[in-house]
Amino acid sequence: MIDFGYKIQADRQINLDTTDKDLANFVRKHENSFNICIGCGTCTASCSAGNFTNFNFRKLQLFICRGEIADVKTEIAKCMLCGKCQLACPRGVNTRNVIMTIRKGLEEQL
């Protein structure tokens, strides 16, 4: 193999045909309100953790749905389970249980 001084750049495109959607399916099954998010971002705007870290519940939900789950474990650890987002959510997503279910899903798959 030759080192030309550059590598074939990784694709940024989300490939929905190949990403891992097992975790999404697990959460969907055990906490159905995970499905009804409309991506408005009220959760993230109201998030205590998000004020000091880059924790973003909207993106967490989104990337799990897309099967991009490499960072999920470290991300959910940032949530303080305060429940403020659950109060604010216009769709009534059970956000705390979503976090708990994600954790369970990750454990079961490990």
Binding site: R12, Q13, I14, N15, L16, D17, G39, R58, L62, R66
Partner: peptide, 15 residues
Amino acid sequence: IKVEDTLAGRPLKLS
């Protein structure tokens, strides 16, 4: 099909 997943801020493809 190719779109931008505007909430993720990334291009996305799907068959």
